[in-house]
Write a protein that binds this DNA or RNA. Sequence first.
RNA 1: GCCCGGAUGGUGGAAUUGGUAGACACAGGAGACUUAAAAUCUCCCGGCUUCACAGCUGUGCGGGUUCAAGUCCCGCUCCGGGCACCA
Length: 819
Amino acid sequence: MEQQYDPNTLEQIARDHWLANNSFAVQQDDSREKFYCLAMFPYPSGKLHMGHVRNYTIADVIARYQRMQGKNVLQPMGWDAFGLPAENAAIKNNVPPAHWTAQNIDYMREQLRQLGFAYDWDREIATCDPDYYRWEQWFFTRLFEKGLAYKKKAEVNWCETDQTVLANEQVVDGCCWRCDNPVERREIDQWFIKITDYAEQLLTDLDKLDQWPEQVRTMQRNWIGRSEGVDLDFDHNGEALSVYTTRPDTLMGATYLAVAPQHPVAKAAAVSNSELAAFVEAQSNIKVAEAEMATMEKLGMATGQFATHPLTGKQVPIWVANFVLMSYGSGAVMSVPAHDERDHAFACKYDLPIVQVVDKAGDEFSYDASTWQDWYADKADTTTINSAEFDGLDFQSAFNAIADKLEALGKGKPTVNYRLRDWGVSRQRYWGAPIPIINCDSCGAVAVPEKDLPVILPTEVAFEGVGSPIKKMPEFYETTCPSCGGDAIRETDTFDTFMESSWYYARYGCAKNDQAMLDGEADYWTPVDQYVGGIEHAILHLLYSRFYHKLLRDEGLVSSDEPFIRLLTQGMVLKDGAKMSKSKGNTVDPQSLIDQYGADTVRLFSMFAAPPEQSLEWSDSGVEGANRFLKRLWKLVHRHLAAEPAPVLDTATLTDQQKNARRKTHETIGKVNDDYGRRQTFNTAIAAIMELCNELGKLDDSAQSRAVMDEALRAVVLMLGPITPHVCHTLWPMLGGEGDVLNAAWPVADEAALTRDSIEIVVQVNGKVRAKMEIAADTDKATVEADALAQDNVQRFLEGVTVRKVIVVPGKLVNIVAN
RNA sequence: GCCCGGAUGGUGGAAUUGGUAGACACAGGAGACUUAAAAUCUCCCGGCUUCACAGCUGUGCGGGUUCAAGUCCCGCUCCGGGCACCA
């Protein structure tokens, strides 16, 4: 054994060994329990950043740990290869997105290899590969046939100067990021998938995801936003003007209606009202993003139109309000300024009437229409007033009574509504999977037949200015209708990249199958047992994937209901308290660290610096510390092997020091196992192993001490195996381990080594620690109490006061309450 | 604006079910080894008081519950994630 720890040499040898033995390739094996461990695949942006290193190290540690538990572990890797940055790079560097992407993939694949991740590279996929996206296209045509995909008008950010659609991130302060001209909203035809048909399932199945962080489930629940309310009709010139409300109990307090600027009533009124037309027009210059809508100034204008209240028959004015969303509900709301904060602010601003219809008993609940108070919106312990026949009811009774009345009149019905909107999958961009639809003047939208799939995206393209090259390529879009054979135009929009990332996890199960999207092996591997990725994906990616999995299930392609059994959401990597970014100039390149210290040190630090779910503050000196620990470990093993071989362990003859070291070893095994498996707090597992190593360093060199050391070092190497696989691969055979450490059995704590003769008890007086005492582990409660009271320092604090109560927490502490 | 998190020494963090706040590291200080430096090893290390024993104080801020609160409850502040076309 070399005296010095030399990561560069040993890491290369370990990786060569894994490569030569194809150590991480796996097949279906029904004789063993399967474990599918997956980290969110990267966008091939150029090179790995620290966030990737952290993400993939966490997943690799879990995969290797599960493998040592004897499971058949699949851990694949691939590339989320379509997306906007490739187009930006194409414009900037004049290189086609396909080339840029391929280069990045090659570079990043090599970096992942250097980090020693246990991937089955035979299953690698890149979403820009036609062999991948052909199945996505095929599946879309299936959804189209089932009526789950449809076309409708939807708004986009439009730059008139560049004649192009902009992504939200390309709109800066309401202007185009390239030409700096104001952006406007524009309605265009787009494809949607009916995720709302699955809203209820997506909501109720969250209850099954008991191994997901509660916060993610809460976010998804809120995002889906199920509400129970009533759809009701006001009458507008003989036509029904439908609104949805969750507060039908306040219907008698509805004093006006508010409609979205795009609402037909608003548009119609604007025709003969130039002021209104100008207002509606002016409201179309805001970015298509909810945050923008919520923070902009709430503005409105009267349409001059009136609607008839369904119960009172009174005329109420119809206003256009810029905060009413056309895409939510019917694009119109009834306004009850007395009991809704936003309506109240709006009514005060525009001097609209406010009628209180809900009251609450108690002096603290006095009503003043000029000032908003939170209780106005309460639903608990309230009574209806000013509501004619509906007076004197609580929330639920009023809700039911008014809903029943509306239903009887044929003017409304109870409805369940969702905040969730259908998934818009059209993108007016080049670098994405072409939508497999042909538009024919006589037949309409026709799906590309299976035999003609995939619709291949041309890759040898030049970016001349902005706009998608395929929209200027007749050889791409000129085609014939599969239905009537006449001239037709191919769809030139491409899919949202969430379409690719919503099912890739399943495709890894049968990455090479060119006959089917998914097969039996894919069904064997799915669902993913452990999914690891950034918290920023808590809603969109994870919700779309859950939806897609149910679509795949309903197509008979998988047999499970949910794609990811256990989810670990990792925090971000920070430097100087801020997210690493090129613009801040605070990036750390993992490559130089790997070159300097080796992959094991980088992996060790990533896992040690913080628990996975928290953000991680980068520290160069911390990396050095991780490296120092590995050097110490190497030295500990070297010293052990340089001495006489250890005799057989004889637990009966151990000294107290040896017994303590051995107990520490087995306590550590127990703790580390819990930290890896249940808690997934790898930082505390590493700390415990460090503590053990510090203890072992103090052992003398007697024969039985060497036996204790031998057992302990083997346990340490096994426990560190998942985190620092290269050095453990090297040390394992030196310590007499058989085979590769990556296949070795995970250590199990010896219960017999854990017993203690004496324990330390803390003694408090009035909750403050006054003494600590060492007592026999089997001391009875009365004796513990007596011993505690007898402590000198305890007596000092009991002088002149009376003991009222003594609380004994067995094995932990005694608290003496006195005054 | 709305939804979801977070805040503990000089720094990263630990304290798992309400029971010893600061494990394990980093930085710093002192010492050993060395001609010297690096490396390595040993010791100290929240603040205040104290020769010492020990005491007081302390987990973003203000209240509360409890024998006992970093942990639970109420009200704030600041920081971060998401908000449907960044991925």
